[in-house]
């Protein structure tokens, strides 16, 4: 968990830093300085357009994190209320409609959604966010509903009903606080999946467009020169692995730490 937190913090820090400062401007191409090996001026070397790799990776971190974060936000913001609502309306047609709607979205993998959106509106980072975010909605709705259902059978919910509280109020006061742990864990998982999805989308050209730097685009560019300059493909890939691994370890650690079954054994 510690490793995960450190890795995540490292990339998040780099992304934040890139908002105010990067070693070199990545929008400016400098063909004279192309494909330089690592040096004090370019700690990780330069690419085939002479752009500084470290700066590219930092900006890429910003793009990835921003896309994944907003996508998780969409999932949380829409999926959790839907899941809570479905749980509160368990066994009614409303529950059925919400869950069937979720199943339907599951039938459109985020890539397919992205393809559809791109086909209509053209590629952009916003469309990538939408495509990943829409797919997050049913994930969070399912997790929220699944976790909320057993809570609805507990006596404290019954006590709240006796105290005259309505379903909405019980959902926010009693159910939501007791499923936040699960939601946090799921959010880290979806966040890391979002990073992967963003990389994949921008790799096939459906994500952020130049001059915005993104890890997936860097890999796509590197692929054209994989025979001559294989090192260009290694760094962005390792960066993605590091970021995703960090998030996954963090999520696992959080789950073990927050597991209610472990907590219940407290004094």
């Amino acid at each position: 968990m510690l490793i995960g937190a450190v890795l995540t913090a490292l990339f998040a820090g780099a992304a934040l830093l890139s908002l105010v400062w990067v070693p070199h401007d990545v929008a400016r191409l400098d063909i004279a300085a192309r494909l330089l090996p690592p040096s004090p001026a370019h700690p990780l070397g330069t690419d085939h357009f002479g752009r500084d790799m470290l700066s590219m990776l930092m900006e890429g971190a910003r793009t990835s994190i921003a896309v994944a974060l907003v996508a998780v936000g969409i999932g949380l913001g829409l999926g959790v209320p839907l899941g809570l609502w479905a749980a509160a309306a368990r066994g009614t047609w409303l529950d059925d409609v919400i869950m069937r709607g979720n199943d339907l979205i599951f039938a459109f993998p985020s890539l397919v959604i992205a393809i559809l959106i791109t086909a209509v509106f053209g590629p952009s980072a916003v469309n990538a966010i939408l495509a990943i975010g829409i797919f997050n909605i049913p994930v969070f709705a399912r997790v929220a509903r699944g976790a909320a259902l057993p809570i609805w059978t507990l006596d404290y919910v019954m006590a709240a009903r006796v105290a005259g509280k309505g379903k909405a109020r019980i959902s926010t006061e009693h159910v939501l606080p007791n499923i936040t742990n699960l939601l946090i864990v799921q959010a880290t998982i979806q966040f890391s999946l979002g990073i992967l999805a963003e990389a994949a989308l921008s790799y096939v050209g459906l994500g952020a467009q130049p001059p915005t730097a993104s890890w997936g685009r860097m890999l796509a560019d590197a692929q054209t020169m994989i025979y001559t300059e294989p090192q260009l493909a290694v760094l962005p890939g390792l960066t993605i692995v590091g970021m995703v691994l960090g998030l996954n370890l963090l999520g696992d650690g959080l789950r073990d730490h927050l597991d209610p079954r472990l907590r219940r054994r407290a004094p």
Binding site: S192, L196, A199, A200, Y203, G216, L219, A233, P236, G237, I240, V241, G242, V244, L245, N248
Partner: peptide, 8 residues
């Protein structure tokens, strides 16, 4: 294995 993007 989960952290590695499949296209990379």
């Amino acid at each position: 294995g989960i952290a590695i993007p499949n296209f990379w």
